[in-house]
Design a protein around this nucleic acid. Structure first.
Lengths: 181, 181
DNA sequence: ACGGATTATGCAACTAGTTGCACAAGGACT
DNA sequence: AGTCCTTGTGCAACTAGTTGCATAATCCGT
């Protein structure tokens, strides 16, 4: 149940329309909480119905016309409550690890190419994060909010670093592995 | 669509009943692909209906009586196909990172305690993985399947190491952070 | 041998997320 | 002026995963 809170956070950072939110979910926020535009529109409707956000009074909201939303006090309160509330970590799910485990039983044929592809994707993502770090967090910038946001970005960087390293190791392992069954 | 393949892998490693599978998903396989017993029973029924697995002919399968399943050739083939097929990485979703980002907007009040709790959980998980490594992968053991399984375990260890380190950093950051809004 | 806990199997309803499509408005090409 | 492409908004159906409960068999102490 985190999508509404992701949206509240995004809207507090800056009031936006559904499409703008979708764009922003493709970049920054989506790096650790992805969402499609349909999810976002549906959730915006719910949040508005629940009195957490409202449309900025501007153009009349006809179909096919952009509506901008802003967070109401109730929305901010709900976000604060949710942020502070204790939550259990979600159980892990990682397809790639599962496939490797399966490969130990049915053989590694065909897997290597996809590992290479993933390695490339993670390398690209890592480069993107590092670019963002250079751009948004130069040495001097460390107001409290910036430090928190930087911390989040560091998590992204370190995770991508881990994956590139791990995938490299895995491919190396494949190199000197005899063909399985 | 990975649960059926997780089950096929588990059943190839050893034929089992629904409950045994559930147990095994709580340990090894569940570390990177968790599933509840209801998911497992439902999926076993589907796999059987699809001709991928069959019940081991033993006790008659009355309700409340254990049925053991084994993988049929079609199941093994499907698993091999799936393992080799190219798959895009799932979009990320991490609640904790999202909450930290929200905290940058609505304040960090109450968050610290939960970070400590998560740190403790990750420390415990890390210790468990390291124990498994000591037990199951002593220096000499490196048949091809073992090396693959060890690689998967290393991913788990490194990920938990990352999280414990990152959470420690985050808590340190909290320490010398002035109270936000 | 009986009543209560535990083990094992399963159905049904719900929630979250995804996919596919529809449609309106506005610019752009001709 | 018409059609075509892109942008922005949205509904509906589907899929995967979760929660809550039901039921049968077995084990265990008295």
């Amino acid at each position: 149940m985190s999508l509404p809170h992701a949206i509240l956070t995004a809207l507090l950072e800056r009031p936006s329309s559904g499409l703008e939110l979708t764009r922003r979910f493709d970049r920054s926020i989506g790096y650790f909480w992805s969402a499609t535009h349909q999810q976002i529109y549906r959730e915006l409707a719910r949040l508005e119905a629940g009195g957490y956000i409202r449309t900025l009074p501007a153009e009349q909201p006809a179909r096919g016309q952009r509506k901008s939303y802003e967070v109401l006090p109730a929305g901010r309160a709900e976000l604060a409550r949710w942020t502070a509330a204790s939550q259990d970590p979600k159980p892990q799910r990682d397809v790639l690890l599962l496939r490797l485990r399966a490969a130990a039983v049915v053989g590694t044929a065909g897997l290597e190419a996809d590992l290479r592809r993933h390695l490339e994707l993670h390398r690209r993502q890592l480069a993107e994060y590092e670019e963002i770090e250079r751009r948004d967090f130069p040495p001097g910038k460390d107001a409290p909010e910036d430090r928190l946001r930087h911390l989040v970005l560091r998590a992204g960087i370190d995770l991508e670093t881990f994956w590139t390293r791990w995938l490299s190791d895995a491919l190396e392992e494949f190199g000197d592995l005899p063909r399985l069954p």
